[in-house]
Nucleic acid binder design. Structure first.
Lengths: 345, 345
DNA sequence: ATGAAAGCGCTAACAA
DNA sequence: TTGTTAGCGCTTTCAT
């Protein structure tokens, strides 16, 4: 009454385990007739090969891992993650490969999680939220766990990576706002040690030529609100704010509104990541669609290629798309401080 | 240069594999001194037990599975799933148990996925999106895979379940709208073969006493829009619409607005699930917060208890909270058709 | 308190 | 084309 094993099937089909195994894997020629007998027997016995035994013998798990260093509570309000995972799954599902998820909120927990992956939970991992100097890159190399990095890692690394160009949409957005007459354009970034935050902030700084109105947030609504307050309290306040994600942008524009400012008339606002509800806000939020679904697909495909033995490769996905909406529409407000600026210049 | 095995550690510590194994599992008394020697050796050799070998020998994987029957692309725009998974992970992370995710978009693929879980990918599963008559319940029993069902399954089942009361907030909401003078209150449900959609729709029908203004959607923005159009085209159109999720509600009120209706003056609108941005829409969307994070926690805890040998149990989580916001504020519009109704009555 | 040895259910190298 | 057999690296029973 226990689950049948490969031996049961072999016996029922009048062959040996090896034949059964090969009938399924196709790793050696099996005559059509025996193959048919094997399959029939397996079907009759309702046999499913044990993934555990297979994993041990083949040193392969048929699973791909993701270790999340984010706090579980933050996961919930993030536009990127679910869509990215969907993209990954879309590829993995075709190959009947599972996705193993583990969250770890401390460095030691994270190391343990990666070691667990390496010890047989997964054949390779996708690394998210890459830092500019990321201990995980060296660590994964050390424990020899195949990996794909999501983001442009500058330092030498033996891993494939999936990159995007975050600079262009930021530059385009700044240019656009300039055309509308904005001269005081601020940026609320994510943590600057993340490669993606840093890339966006860097593009911003190069575009406006100054760090004066750059503020470092942490992607939470709280920081969006606090830093917006700080910027609006400036004697020469910005007339436009670019946020590094939609959550901060929305928190920011709610706050601005609570101070009596009208978006976009008094303050233009733009986000990043294009949450699926952002188009429905009013005013609708200008944002940058980054196609996390597609990036998930590409990352999964890249990892499977690596696991199949292809040499690592850096692929760049051209997916970012600036979506201009009402929150940045219209001309810049008659900046009350422009005269002041001129006085000082 | 290969990964060290338990034998290497045993040799280095001058004991046998059995001792090493027991030093870690604590399944038999080991003297403090040998234990110390073992741990020291393991540390020195940088040994991590192979989860594959352990899984095979112990018939346990230390992983919990979720098979998603949704299309991967839908996953992305759903308020429930990421938060639920976060809750699950919050519990699993404490026990260093992994979460195995697999999406399957056809029944056969789904069966394969569950069999893979049963064959060693996971020790048990959490079943989402329960149908009123759900083949998976019988199937999981047949393949003897421990499971926790999310939702109130009516038929006899050997599984634990995590239930919520979706009826009360619907009833409260209808009552509230009645007080405001609404007499034509419609409902756009999710697919009625889902237990949760059905529970909400059932509560609605019992509250309003009629199915006339009930429309069955599928939780997508498209169906929200289409069914809203249908309802608004009615000769005696509703003055309030309850949707079974926020996505449909938002699509619905965008559409209503495009027809020149003002929310909530001409049409009151309410959603379900309370997407994290719903409070920021304008008007802010009335919705029902269902605490998916907490339900995820409870489901994971329940599954771990089942796996530890406790008898299955149905737990009810009292988590639903009606959040009244501007989209249902104010009195019912002077219903343009009330006179008509009187003419006909 | 510890050792010896038999599996767990497959894969793959080696034979035939 | 198929059979034989030795692992894969653990856990666990049976001895001591």
């Amino acid at each position: 009454m226990d689950r049948p094993t490969i031996d049961d099937v072999a016996r029922a089909a009048g062959v040996t385990k090896a034949t059964v195994s090969h009938a399924y894997s196709g790793k050696r020629p099996i005559s059509a007739t025996t193959k048919a007998r094997v399959f029939a027997a397996a079907q009759r016995l309702d046999w499913v090969p044990s993934s555990r035994a297979r994993a041990l013998a083949a040193r392969r798990t048929d699973a791909v891992g993701v270790v999340l260093s984010r706090d579980p509570t933050i996961l919930a309000s993030d536009a990127f993650f679910p869509a990215f995972i969907s993209g990954v799954e879309a590829v993995l599902a075709e190959h009947e490969i599972a996705l193993v998820l583990q969250v770890a909120s401390s460095r030691t927990a994270e190391e343990r999680a990666y070691r667990a992956m390496a010890s047989g939970r997964a054949d390779g991992v996708i690394v998210l939220d890459l830092h500019r100097v990321d201990w995980r890159v060296a660590y994964l190399r050390q424990i020899r766990l195949p990996a794909v990095l999501l983001g442009a890692y500058d330092a030498e690394s033996p891993f494939s990576s999936v990159r995007t160009d975050d600079a262009t949409p930021v530059r385009d957005l700044v240019a656009r706002l300039r055309e509308q007459g904005h001269t005081r354009i601020a940026h609320v970034s994510g943590p600057l040690d993340y490669v993606h935050s840093h890339a966006r902030a860097g593009a911003y700084v190069r575009s406006v030529g100054s760090k004066e109105l750059l503020r470092e947030g942490d992607f939470t609504a709280g920081s969006g609100r606090a830093l917006t307050a700080e910027l609006l309290d400036l004697p020469d306040r910005p007339t436009a704010i670019l946020y590094s994600n939609d959550t901060m942008a929305i928190a920011g524009f709610s706050y601005a509104r609570s101070r009596g400012l009208v978006v976009p008339d008094d303050l233009a606002v733009a986000g990043f990541d294009d949450d699926h509800l952002s188009a429905h806000l009013s005013p609708a939020l200008t944002s940058v669609f980054t196609d996390p679904f597609r990036r998930g697909r590409v990352a999964a495909e890249r990892l499977l290629a690596d696991l199949a033995g292809e040499p690592p490769e850096s692929v760049t996905v051209d997916c970012n798309e600036l979506r201009l909406r009402a929150s940045t529409a219209g001309a810049a407000p008659e900046a009350p401080h422009t005269e002041l600026e001129e006085e000082f210049s």
